[in-house]
Amino acid sequence: GSPLAQQIKNIHSFIHQAKAAGRMDEVRTLQENLHQLMHEYFQQ
């Protein structure tokens, strides 16, 4: 897949890990990143 698709997959797993660790501030930051990446992805 594209590097962007790979990045989106990575962030999904980072979010999963951050949630499991209870780091909600990190989850929020990652979700904002994910949102931006998704936006770029669909602009392609």
Rank of each mutant, 00 (worst) to 15 (best):
G1R: 10
G1Q: 11
G1F: 03
G1S: 12
G1W: 04
G1H: 12
S2I: 14
S2K: 08
S2V: 13
S2Y: 09
S2E: 11
S2H: 10
S2Q: 10
P3C: 15
P3Y: 14
P3R: 13
L4V: 05
L4H: 03
L4N: 02
A5T: 08
A5L: 14
A5Y: 13
A5R: 10
A5I: 14
A5S: 09
Q6E: 11
Q6H: 05
Q6D: 09
Q7I: 10
Q7P: 01
Q7R: 11
Q7V: 08
I8E: 00
I8V: 03
I8D: 00
I8Y: 02
I8H: 00
I8K: 00
K9V: 05
N10F: 10
N10V: 11
N10Q: 14
N10L: 15
N10D: 12
I11E: 00
I11A: 03
I11H: 02
H12Y: 15
H12S: 06
H12Q: 14
H12V: 15
H12I: 15
H12L: 15
S13F: 14
F14Y: 11
F14T: 05
F14W: 13
F14P: 00
F14S: 10
I15F: 02
I15M: 05
I15K: 01
H16M: 14
H16F: 11
H16G: 06
H16C: 15
H16I: 13
H16P: 00
Q17R: 12
Q17G: 03
Q17K: 11
Q17C: 14
Q17T: 07
Q17I: 12
Q17E: 11
Q17S: 08
A18F: 04
A18D: 00
A18Y: 04
A18W: 04
A18C: 11
A18T: 01
A18K: 02
A18P: 00
K19M: 15
K19P: 00
K19C: 13
A20K: 11
A20H: 05
A20R: 09
A21I: 04
A21W: 07
A21E: 09
A21D: 07
A21M: 08
G22T: 02
G22S: 03
G22L: 04
G22I: 02
G22K: 04
G22Q: 03
R23N: 09
R23P: 01
R23K: 09
R23W: 04
R23V: 02
M24Q: 05
M24A: 06
D25V: 04
D25T: 05
D25A: 06
D25I: 04
D25E: 10
E26W: 12
E26D: 07
E26N: 03
E26S: 03
E26P: 01
E26V: 11
V27N: 01
V27S: 01
V27R: 01
R28Q: 07
R28W: 07
R28I: 08
R28K: 10
R28D: 03
R28A: 09
T29W: 11
T29N: 08
T29F: 09
T29D: 06
L30W: 08
L30R: 01
L30M: 04
L30K: 01
L30Y: 04
L30T: 00
Q31K: 10
Q31S: 08
Q31Y: 15
E32Q: 11
E32Y: 12
E32V: 08
E32H: 11
N33M: 15
N33F: 15
N33H: 15
N33T: 15
N33C: 09
N33P: 01
L34P: 00
L34I: 03
L34A: 01
L34H: 01
H35P: 00
H35Y: 12
H35S: 09
H35K: 14
H35C: 09
Q36W: 10
Q36Y: 09
Q36M: 10
Q36D: 06
Q36A: 11
Q36L: 11
L37E: 00
L37S: 01
L37K: 03
L37P: 00
M38L: 13
M38S: 02
M38D: 00
H39D: 06
H39R: 14
H39T: 10
H39V: 12
H39Y: 11
H39Q: 12
H39S: 08
H39A: 11
H39C: 14
E40N: 06
E40S: 07
E40F: 09
Y41P: 01
Y41V: 04
Y41R: 03
Y41K: 03
Y41E: 02
Y41T: 03
Y41S: 03
Y41D: 01
F42Y: 11
F42W: 12
F42R: 10
Q43T: 09
Q43N: 10
Q43S: 11
Q43R: 13
Q43W: 08
Q43K: 13
Q43I: 09
Q43F: 08
Q44W: 13
Q44F: 12
Q44V: 09
Q44L: 12
